[in-house]
Design a protein around this nucleic acid. Structure first.
Lengths: 185, 185
DNA sequence: CCTTTATGGAACATCAGTGTTCCACTGGAG
DNA sequence: CTCCAGTGGAACACTGATGTTCCATAAAGG
């Protein structure tokens, strides 16, 4: 019991709570723990058993976001190829983050606190620097603006997907088209 | 007293509270009325005297947003010239909305509730339709996506301005450049 | 089958935000 | 100077969220 051996049941419950938290908080950052527990089909008591207080839950969500973001960075192979192409790959990969995008974008959880120093954010900075050097990114746009445009376009795309009114294929297409047009030299 | 003749003092106080509400809520949509009163340099009692409850305050902010948005639509002359140019004028005009942009974008207040039926939103739809018809806007992008890109770029620009790290001139330049590149045919 | 293990609900104390009332004060208009 | 509109603060009741404890129950696994 010293190392908290996690049984299958506990892992599953923990994941259900975490998923519900992401889903509910994305829609309402001020949602109560009761709402999250309900969404997870779990008693409020159980939620507190896994995450003693709100801060613990938020920290766990943040950590999960960091993990997923790290995965995304690896899958997108941000260090390969021209800078612009890397950014477009980042777009596609990040769309799979779903509601986590909303939490990051609205600063319900902070990218800085994700333990992301050597992860996604860094890799993105590198890709942008590379793109400016290799001439695939518009030199009239600052690195901060390039990164900001990427994030806000991503958030827009996720919003559209979440609405569910437009088919995924269309949204991804418009996202990539827009970002390419906006950022390319 | 039947028509609530507003003295200069009352008008000034009311405005101070409204301004503070916009400023504070933009930074934290869940801010307490106490925080808003403090930011307005006004006692909480006084705030309640002007806006009996939170909903009243929010409604007043929403109404103010509608008014400012209506002004913006007029000033931008959205119905004139090519669609793309109208949208670029809209960008510049809307940047003056400041923190109201944040409230609208984060849905702290809703555009629909602004009483905006015949105002900004409608004019924007028209400008987009016109731009698609006159060939200045990219026909591969849906009206919804075009409008979404406009808003998110606007929000990004305002975020940069708010940070205060980059000079206003640079931000506006990058905004217009990005939007033009992204949306033009 | 029986024993852990995990759970849900009820009850409770606590706390922060809200909305109200009352009273004392202040400064500007008359 | 004298009102009095406008204000701020103290005090209060009320509400909803939070975090805790305890107990009964269910289900997973040997």
């Amino acid at each position: 019991m010293t190392v908290e051996l996690e049984t299958g049941t506990r892992i599953r419950t923990r994941k259900a709570i975490l998923d519900a938290a992401v889903r509910v908080l994305a829609q309402d950052p001020g949602a109560s723990l009761g709402q999250i527990a309900d969404a997870a089909d779990v008693g409020r008591t159980t939620l507190h058993r896994y995450f003693p207080d709100r801060a613990d839950l938020l920290a766990a969500v943040t950590q999960e976001a960091g993990r997923r973001l790290g995965d995304a960075a690896v899958r997108a192979r941000l260090e390969e190829g021209p800078g612009l192409d890397a950014l477009l790959r980042a777009c596609q990969t990040c769309l799979t983050l779903g509601d986590l995008l909303t939490l990051l974008f609205t600063e319900t959880i902070s990218l800085e606190a994700c333990g992301d120093e050597d992860g996604f954010s860094r890799a993105l900075d590198d890709a942008i620097a590379r793109g400016l050097a290799d001439g695939t990114l518009d030199p009239r746009l600052s690195p901060a603006w390039l990164q900001g445009t990427l994030w806000s376009s991503l958030y827009l795309a996720w919003s559209e997907l979440r609405e569910g009114t437009s088919p995924q294929h269309d949204v991804v297409g418009q996202l990539l088209l827009t970002v390419r047009k906006a950022l390319s030299a």
